[in-house]
Design a binder for these strands. Sequence first.
DNA 1: TGGCGATGTCAACAGGTGTTGGCCTACAGT
DNA 2: ACTGTAGGCCAACACCTGTTGACATCGCCA
Lengths: 192, 192
Amino acid sequence: MTATPPAPRRSDATRAAILIAARDRFAADGYERATIRAIARDAGIDPSMVMRYYGNKEGLFAAASEFDLRMPDVAAVATEDVGAVLVTHFLERWEEDEALTALLRVGVTNPVGAERMRSILQRQLAPVAAAVCPDPEPGRAAERAVLVASQILGMAVSRYVLRFPPAAAMPREEVVAWLAPTVQRYLTAVAP
Amino acid sequence: MTATPPAPRRSDATRAAILIAARDRFAADGYERATIRAIARDAGIDPSMVMRYYGNKEGLFAAASEFDLRMPDVAAVATEDVGAVLVTHFLERWEEDEALTALLRVGVTNPVGAERMRSILQRQLAPVAAAVCPDPEPGRAAERAVLVASQILGMAVSRYVLRFPPAAAMPREEVVAWLAPTVQRYLTAVAP
DNA sequence: TGGCGATGTCAACAGGTGTTGGCCTACAGT
DNA sequence: ACTGTAGGCCAACACCTGTTGACATCGCCA
């Protein structure tokens, strides 16, 4: 049997339009208020198309929330710069792709979304922490990863979701200047 | 005119039961999935009672999400302990009262909830930051408050809402040991 | 050209939602 | 004891949701 190659379908444009509209709506409204009808209207097609291509609403969310953090190669940066590099990277990533906001909004109220966030933490962030932290035990690296996640997520919630005025107004460099030492310490300091 | 005194009504027990059930449901399900019917069922009364006493769903949420952080008196603690005291206080507050989780879950998807969180930050956390931080300018104190909020909120999301396994499993003292220096620095270090 | 699967639309279903008004009951004040 | 009022329940409303199946249409391949 031949491995099924891409096999471009004629409906690829529609599928993509649905996905874009879905990410928009999930990011803006969260899971429950992002209705299939609204998403279909944004994509310029009929609601039943969404069902045909993604099965049901959960399937649509699963497809729309696939996400690659594109973590930088920490082996290539000086150990004392890793905090600043990571914070900068996360802020950029958050601002260029609303899928992260969608993921956060949905993860907080929906079990499927929460599971998706857990898997991103474990599969994409934890390895970076394990690569850079001084501990030999992997369990400790997972704790360090979650500490980093807590600070990054908290700033994202404050700045992009709840829009606390001082957080939303702070220039990006200032956020980096404050958070970088925190992340740096969570990753490289000796455990307290 | 005499200032209206408590004037205890016969329905106070029902009102309280509704509020308790509402906080439960909002904390567990978020705003949209916490239905008035479910809340009324939990409280053992008819859904129309909720409307009579709180007007509509938004009014119910407004009543259920009134919240006092009960911030400790920072003037009474040594300056170098303020980080540990605050982190400990927040973790306790979060674990003893699910209204905070409700507030967070709703604030992320609902404009009214977000506004409620902003006002709590401004009215309850910001003054504490202003009292303890070294800057003379109040604008800077607001930034410091929001930095503290970001770390506390982020840990709360990771630990109590998304339940990242390493965060949920960490004993409270360990969380304090890691976060206290961060909060301490946000409040008292010279601005970067 | 004929046919056939993929693409898309329309209308409807079954269930759940916030919200409303009418009605009954029990208590408090006179 | 009588009555007005507050507390409570029931049934219904209008609307919106995810989801489904029947029908039309387009474009490719033989």
